[in-house]
Simulated assay, not measured.
Amino acid sequence: MTLAVVRNLASARALRTAEEVEVFEQEIVDQYALAMASAGLTDGYIGSSRSVVIDFARTL
């Protein structure tokens, strides 16, 4: 079995506005939350983890 490199063509474009950056960041955090939910973590843990990630991103 071999692995192939997969590239998302939609992510190749540059983020031009602050709104596009915010939407992209939110999408990444949402995907992270979905991954945690599918791993069976509790809603409380996912919510607090999401808050930490968003707060960290805003301080940058």
Rank of each mutant, 00 (worst) to 15 (best):
S51D: 12
V23C: 05
A35M: 14
L41K: 07
M1I: 06
T2G: 08
A33V: 10
L3W: 05
R58P: 02
A33R: 05
G40R: 01
L34I: 14
V29H: 00
E20W: 03
A33S: 15
A35S: 15
T2A: 11
V52M: 11
F24S: 04
V6W: 05
S38K: 15
S51A: 14
A4I: 06
R16T: 14
E20Q: 08
L15S: 09
A57L: 11
E22Q: 10
F56A: 13
E19S: 11
M36R: 10
A12P: 00
A37K: 13
S38V: 13
V29T: 03
A39Y: 03
S51Q: 15
R50E: 01
L3V: 09
D30C: 06
D55K: 13
Q26K: 12
F24C: 03
E27P: 00
E25Y: 04
M36F: 10
R7F: 04
T2R: 10
E25N: 11
V6N: 04
F56V: 11
S38A: 15
T59N: 06
A39L: 07
A18G: 14
L60Q: 07
S49H: 01
M1T: 06
F24R: 07
S51R: 13
L3P: 00
A39G: 03
R50H: 01
A18P: 12
Y32S: 05
I28K: 12
V23T: 10
T2Q: 09
A39K: 09
V53M: 02
L34W: 13
G47D: 07
T17L: 10
Q31G: 14
T17W: 08
T17R: 08
N8V: 00
V52N: 05
A33G: 12
Y32N: 04
F56M: 13
A4W: 05
A57C: 13
A35D: 14
A18T: 12
M36N: 10
A39F: 04
I54S: 13
S51Y: 12
L15W: 02
G44W: 01
A57T: 07
A12M: 03
Q31T: 12
E20N: 04
T59Y: 02
E19D: 14
L34E: 13
R50P: 00
T17A: 09
F56S: 11
G44Y: 02
F56W: 14
E27K: 04
A33K: 08
D30L: 05
A12H: 01
S49Y: 01
Q31V: 14
M1V: 08
V23H: 09
A37R: 12
L60I: 07
G44Q: 02
L41S: 09
A4F: 05
T59I: 10
A12G: 03
T2S: 12
V5N: 04
A18I: 15
A57R: 02
L60D: 02
L9V: 02
L41F: 11
D30H: 09
Y45V: 06
R58N: 11
L15Q: 08
S11T: 07
L3Y: 05
E19Q: 13
E22R: 04
S11Y: 07
Q26D: 09
L41T: 03
Y45T: 07
R58T: 15
T42K: 03
V29D: 01
Q26Y: 09
T2K: 09
V53L: 07
S38T: 15
G40P: 00
E20D: 08
V53S: 00
T2L: 10
I28Y: 06
T2H: 10
I46W: 01
R58W: 08
T59S: 09
M1Q: 09
E22C: 04
R7E: 08
N8F: 00
R58C: 05
